[in-house]
Amino acid sequence: MTTEQATETAQRPHPALWGVLYRSSTPFWEAVRRHELSLQRCAECGRWLFPPRPMCPDCRCAESEWVPVSGRGTVHSWVTYDESPHPAFAAPYSVLLVELEEGARLVSNPVDIAPDELEIGMPVRVVFRDEGDDFTVFLFERATPDAQEEPASAQ
């Protein structure tokens, strides 16, 4: 997994540094920091809300709750960079779109899956890796379709 080599020389950018972190997103990243995957759900109608937002688009309720999820899903799509767009990421590396069991689709990177091994529909499960004192990133590794074990750490 080449992102691991690349992060030795350049820091993977924290979303806050790019100014893309709304307060609505903060609980998501706080959970990741605790090595948990958590999703926002409308307190009124129970709809999953991803990306996080201040209001439910179905019932316009402004109250929501954060619910820990299994972190299991399948590869919905992916791309492979053959040229690096940023010093923190050495090419070639892949970017996954993972569809969780709850339906939310998250962008992430694969762990220990080579670009030519990736397949749409491949079962994956979340793992976490600390990228420094104040940032943890979530990644996905290969899972067997019926595996029941808890999400593990990548390190």
Binding site: Y22, S24, R53, P54, M55, R60, A62
Partner: peptide, 13 residues
């Protein structure tokens, strides 16, 4: 103590 997005949604609603 809120995001501008949050306040925009409330005002529009």
């Amino acid at each position: 103590g809120r995001d501008e997005l949050d306040m925009a949604c409330e005002a529009i609603k």
